[in-house]
Amino acid sequence: MSSQLLTVSPSPHIHQQQQTVSNLMFGVVIALTPAFIVSLVVFGVGAIKVTLAGVFFCMLFEYLISKYLLKKEANLADGSAIITGILLAFNLPANLPIWIIAIGSLVAIGLGKMAFGGLGNNPFNPAMVGRVFLLISFPVPMTSWPVAMESQWRLADGVTGATPMEIFKEGLEAGLPISEIMGQLPSYFTLFLGGQGGCIGEVSGLALFLGFLYMLYKKIITWHIPVSLLATVFALTGLFWMINPAQYADPVFQVITGGLLLGAFYMATDYVTSPMTSKGMLIYGVGIGVFTVVIRLWGSYPEGISFAILIMNGFVPLINKYVKPRRFGEVKPA
């Protein structure tokens, strides 16, 4: 055997086969499928239109920007542009005009990701950057929701309605008692199954939860961020509800409505923009929870999770710098 034929490289000599970058990303897509199916039932054609547009534009801009601006190989196969596209779309109303989606995608990919050097380098969650940009620039179309189950198979604009969160907030402003506002809303069970108006991806807590379990099972994410985030929102809103049930909604309502689950399971867990250690993830989750509650209760937007995620994204470098894993053999202070 001539020695030239032998490969010589340092250990380890084997590598796990299950988790490549595209497998991980594809796993997230699978996890999002139940939520997509529910949104099809609820919003019909609009859901397909918006989701496809989101994915298409994100991939297109990723390709164009890498090729012509950054002048390097576009890497669409890693699946990250697809996920950004889906997540952006899932955070949009089903009747949003396509050109707005295109703008959102350009901002998400261009500003949210490529401006920082592409996958792995962006401090802010691209889908959230895109969504928040649209929310500020196009507040009206971004907050007029097709009513669930009514306009789903019409291509033209159908009836629009409000999300449970908005109904609640507007009801409060109009001075209605809580019991009456709640009377206007479907039961929690219906809300959880998929009966709420709102963005494409946030209609069914149950479907989102199934996807979350799948991602845990496949070890795509860990429990730390979603659990700490949801627990924080539940505890804080629960506290206010106990202090003054006439003014604050109860914690169950807070947790199952308004995109909180979508954000907690899929957006806050984005690899690139979340902390690297379990301890860091817990801090990050709690932080997002706190900001979400603050914005929901006292902010001018009914929805808080997108802003909260972006705010906490900003803290991630700090968290990574100061929150270290539990080191083996650390000398405990005596």
């Binding site: 970058v21 890693d78 996958l119 690899y271 690139v272 902390p275 379990s278 270290k324 080191r327 083996f328």
Partner: peptide
């Protein structure tokens, strides 16, 4: 490929390193 900051390496390190 680029580091996607998935933190898997942190999770598997038996010495608690990054």
């Amino acid at each position: 490929k680029v580091c996607i900051r998935c933190s898997q390496c942190v999770g598997v390190c038996p010495m608690g390193l990054e």
